[in-house]
Amino acid sequence: MIADLLAWLTNPEHWRGAGGVPAQTLLHLYYCVVSVGTAMLIAVPLGLYIGHTGRGATAVVAVSNAMRALPTLGLVTMLVLIFGLGDTPALAGLVILAIPAILAGTCAGVDSVPSDIVDAARGMGMTSIQRLWRVELPNALPLLIGGVRSAMLQVVATATVAAYVNLGGLGRILLDGLAVGHYEQMAAAALFIALLAVAVDLVLAGISRLVVPRGLALAAEANRDGS
């Protein structure tokens, strides 16, 4: 098995052209970035609004829990049946998958801002919008980015189903292997999906370090030392 896997991996045929590993990895990554990006455009503003106003929190929790329960494969199949084959239905499925984690992270982030800080901001004369941008959003960033990271991991893993509806990506390699009974090819695809997930998460961790304000990192450190 291991020897077969090595043979597959070292075959130059598998590293070339549109069906090769590099191209499929890039395509996989493209699906992930586009769908998580779109999910952020929807979930972050919504989460900020809910966290800031405290309005609609229960409804959103209910809806996003229901969304989490949706089987992505079934959803994608349904979207394809409705809208036909193509990138859009598959990506829409991934977007729906990514929304709950980002929404929850954003809401929790705004919610976690200590009330005395918000009270001070209000008492010093910040308007509602100023409070959101200058105080709540920066302080919500650690949890918000945490939500994006967990959404990204789910999407990297689940983007494999895109192949089921005739799309590319690492799932293509996996499903093609399944179709012809080449288990070493399936194992190689699974390995690349796992490596991609780890690599993407490391990149997001790096971004998190860059955008989370230094004062918050210090505060988190102080809390850890204190407890």
Partner: peptide, 22 residues
Amino acid sequence: AARLRRGIGYVIQQAGLFPHRT
């Protein structure tokens, strides 16, 4: 309200400093 508050100093119990700012 916001303008009024900018003209009145406000100090609270836990200081309420913004942790993300120097």
